[in-house]
Structure formats: structure tokens, C-alpha cells
Simulated scan of single mutants.
Amino acid sequence: MRCRSAVIVLPEFINTYGLVSRCTHCYAVAVDLDGTFLQAIGEKAREHGCYLKLNVTLKRPEFDLDENETTDKVTDTNILFDPTGKIVGTCDKQILMGNEHNFLQKACFIAPFDSVSLVL
């Protein structure tokens, strides 16, 4: 008998080691929500027919820059894919730890509380 996973959870900062030395480096290693890295992850969720949860540093060009900032914002974001490979939920880390304060934007809103949020 072969078992199948219904949910696969990958570790935090799956796209990069969390420690970066400057804002430009943080932005350079962050991924785009519609980029090839996350598309490949979505394809794996579809291929295996399961939910897949991961955490990445995510580029957030839609966030406004403060007057002294020169690099677009980056968040520490949890992403949930459904078994068809579609992104069905995201939420940004609300409490940043250590060096994360220097390069990441904390959550700007609280994710809705529903069955998807429980997995994120």
C-alpha cells in the first residue's frame, strides 16, 4: 500500500538563506509572486496532487517606499498552493526576528481567518 501526502510543508526561506548583508542583496534573491520559481513549485503541487505550503522572501513592488529607501520592499511570506497548483493563500510574517528587521517589511495586514489561514 502506498501513502500519499495531502499537505507538504517546506521550511522558511526556501528560496534563500535568511541572512543577507544589504537591502539590494535581499531584493536580488527575493522571488516574484508570478515568477518562474513559484510557478515551478505550483507545478510540483499539481504533479503530486497535494497542498504545498512554503515560505519565501517575496518582492513587493506594490508597497510604497519611504522617502529614504532606494530598494523596493521584500516580505517574509507564506504561500499555499492547492492540488491544482494554484496559489490559494498568502500571508506575511508579522513579527520579524533579529536581522530580518534590517531588510524585510513586516506584515501590513492580517490574513483572513479561515481554513486556508490555519494552514499558513
Rank of each mutant, 00 (worst) to 15 (best):
N68W: 14
G98Y: 15
C23G: 14
E43P: 10
L80W: 07
K86F: 02
F81Q: 12
L104F: 02
Q39N: 12
F103M: 03
L38W: 00
Q94A: 13
R46C: 06
I8Y: 13
P83V: 08
L38G: 00
A45E: 04
L58S: 00
T71E: 07
M97L: 13
D82K: 15
D32K: 11
G42R: 04
V116Q: 08
T75A: 01
I8E: 08
E62F: 01
P11Y: 07
H48G: 12
F103Q: 05
N15C: 03
R46F: 06
M97K: 11
V31P: 01
I14K: 14
S21G: 01
A40H: 09
T70Q: 15
Y51I: 05
A30H: 02
D76E: 04
Y51N: 02
A111M: 10
Q105E: 09
V88A: 09
V31K: 03
V29A: 03
I95A: 14
G98W: 15
L52D: 05
V29S: 00
E100D: 05
Q105G: 03
E43W: 05
I110D: 13
V20I: 10
G85M: 03
L65G: 04
K59T: 09
A111N: 07
V74N: 01
A6K: 07
D72E: 11
T36A: 12
N78Y: 15
T57K: 01
T75H: 03
L52K: 04
V74Q: 03
D114G: 12
F103S: 08
I87T: 01
H25C: 15
D92P: 00
Q105S: 04
K106H: 08
F81P: 08
K73L: 04
T84N: 09
A107H: 09
R22D: 14
R46D: 11
D92S: 05
S115E: 15
A6I: 06
L19W: 15
H101W: 05
Q39I: 08
S115D: 15
T24F: 05
D66W: 11
H101Q: 01
E12V: 11
T70F: 04
D92T: 10
F37N: 03
G49R: 13
K86R: 13
F81V: 09
K86L: 10
Q39M: 02
F37Q: 02
L118V: 12
F109Q: 10
S21A: 09
S5G: 09
N55M: 00
D64Q: 13
T57Y: 08
L96I: 05
V119D: 08
C108D: 09
C91F: 05
I87A: 08
T24S: 07
R4Q: 11
A40G: 02
D32E: 13
T71F: 11
K86Q: 07
G89C: 07
D82T: 11
D64K: 14
N102A: 04
T77C: 07
T36K: 13
C23V: 12
C3E: 14
K59R: 06
L33M: 06
K73I: 00
P61R: 09
E47A: 06
V74L: 10
H101P: 08
S117R: 15
Y51F: 11
L120K: 00
T70D: 10
R4T: 14
N15Y: 00
G98K: 15
T24L: 05
K53Q: 12
G89R: 01
A111I: 02
D82S: 14
L10D: 01
I95W: 04
L80K: 06
T71H: 06
Y51E: 09
L104A: 02
L65N: 02
T24R: 12
